[in-house]
């Protein structure tokens, strides 16, 4: 499991696309993958979480669904593209405040599960988890 993390418009998707190049992958934008999908990219998780919150789904259930996805894809390639949204001003909108809390906690769970976490800062990748075995600074920064 690999997480690619960073602020909006920092080049996260482009980084993943270049990393995958020609490999067969199911790209899930704003949704969770189906059970049959093998080798997946999950992007726009925050959109999916927001949709569930708008449908009045409780946080516990949302967390469980995300956890179940991680478990069901164990041993297969799973790349999660997560957007950092939690370093701004407290939102006025109640659902956005809730969203910030929920994704903050989900991200913590996902970061715990992932073997690799790469942060993207304006196109520059930096390995922030998994460095012990995999960090080769020179290669890592291309």
């Amino acid at each position: 499991m690999h997480i690619v993390f960073g602020g909006a418009f920092n080049g996260k998707r482009q980084y993943v696309k270049e990393m995958l190049s020609s490999k067969e992958t199911v790209w899930c934008e704003g949704k969770l993958p189906d059970a049959a999908d093998q080798s997946v990219v999950i992007a726009g998780l925050e959109q999916w979480v927001k949709m569930q919150l708008e449908r009045q789904m409780d946080e516990e259930t949302i967390q469980q669904l995300v956890k179940k996805t991680v478990q069901s894809k164990k041993g297969q390639q799973q790349i999660w593209i997560l957007t950092d949204m939690n370093r701004g001003i407290v939102p006025v909108d109640a659902i956005e405040r809730k969203l910030r809390d929920v994704i903050g906690r989900i991200y913590q769970d996902l970061f715990k599960e992932a073997e690799l976490v790469t942060r993207i800062w304006y196109g520059i990748p930096q390995l922030i988890k998994g460095a012990d075995e995999n960090e080769h600074l020179y290669q890592n920064r291309r």
């Binding site: 949204m85 370093r87 196109g123 520059i124």
Partner: peptide, 26 residues
């Protein structure tokens, strides 16, 4: 400035800023 680690409030502005920053960094 770092202003992209937040909700997208002004898509046009933030998208441009991301693109400009990526170019300058490169």
């Amino acid at each position: 400035n770092e202003v992209l680690d937040d909700f997208v409030r002004d898509e046009s502005y933030q998208k441009w800023l991301g693109e400009i920053h990526r170019w300058i960094v490169a």
